[in-house]
Design a protein around this nucleic acid. Structure first.
Lengths: 197, 197
DNA sequence: GTCTATATTGAGATAGAC
DNA sequence: GTCTATCTCAATATAGAC
């Protein structure tokens, strides 16, 4: 209670608290369209108070993108990502990606909208592409072992898979009718078996 | 050659020419991040020259979104969109959506990134949602007639379908390895039959 | 940790000549 | 149809007090 921070209530933000509000605003209006002014208003602070916690608007973005990318890369490091045949490993990674999307929804949402305008954005895109490439390699492996159909190009298949998964950030909201686990199962069902009866 | 416009070459833009360049820039940097200044530079014009063709930056966006939405809504008006059983109609609309995406790629790309910050954007989102709802109704119908599996919620299924299709704007480029028709077939294959052999 | 200024830059848009 | 100014406003960021 003397020097050590006992964090409660609202005013008296720490960096994580600033970041959470900022990311929500970035997702609502878009990063560029969100001024430090409206951010300050949402925080109930003055603009300059934000600069006590972060050096720039850019740094807010960098911190947020790091959250998302750490989560995704973490999936590839899990044991099940390198255990079993390629189809099993692919299923694990897809399930893991859905889990990270739903767990860190705002951060991943922001990541998926980054265009590469700044150095920070370009570094994030590079990390994201590396993740995508790892999954693409799994798809090729799964096809080569005979688990996946050969009449759809693996590159196209990977992109359609990511299209399905990444689009989740556009509509999934925690506490909705569909839970995150059920959603991951649905994604795998459609991806592997399709919608036809 | 006297009063009538004989349009050739580059300088001496008409509205469509301005729009084409503008949309390319909007897609590259994002709408908000694209200033009228960089737009003018790309056109090889002064900023004020742009205002001879359009009233505002907002109007450029409105014209572009109209192109995309007209195309998508047109698919629903085609005869095959109301002929046959629900699964056949659904297949036609999905194929049509892919065709519009690839034909009007830059315009649809822009549409899919709109957040709803301005009146123009909100009107576009409303039209887009109406299109989505029409497809969702087809999915429900196809499930009810027994063509689609009942163990995936139709709302989720529709969103995953759109996720797959809409993501095409992120990577499809005309003249690439995969043609637009083959791509539409791949989408239908994954959507209906899945990737598993 | 937050405030009230304020510096500075670049945005969207207009006026009026050619 | 395009130009060279120029207006006006809002943006990011800083200075320095409390």
């Amino acid at each position: 209670m003397t020097e050590t921070a006992v964090r409660r209530g609202r005013p008296g933000y720490d960096q994580a608290g600033i970041l959470e509000v900022a990311v929500a605003a970035f997702n609502e209006f878009g990063y560029d369209a969100t001024s430090m002014g409206v951010l300050a208003a949402r925080l109930g602070l003055s603009k300059s108070a934000i600069y006590h916690h972060v050096a720039s608007k850019d740094e807010l973005l960098e911190l947020a993108l790091g959250q998302a990318l750490d989560g995704l890369e973490g999936v590839l490091l899990e044991e099940a990502a390198s255990t079993g045949d390629a189809a099993e490993r692919l299923a694990h990674v897809l399930r893991g990606a859905v889990r990270v999307l739903t767990d860190k929804l705002p951060y991943v949402t922001l990541l998926l909208r980054v265009r590469g305008n700044t150095e920070v954005e370009r570094r994030a895109l590079a990390r994201r592409r590396a993740f995508d490439r790892a999954v693409a390699a799994l798809v090729v492996e799964a096809r080569d072992e005979g688990s996946l159909r050969a009449d759809v190009d693996p590159g196209v298949a990977t992109r359609l898979l990511f299209g399905m998964i990444n689009s989740i950030v556009e509509w999934y909201r925690p506490g909705g009718a569909e839970g995150a686990d059920q959603l991951a199962e649905d994604v795998l069902t459609v991806a592997f078996d399709g919608l036809r009866v």
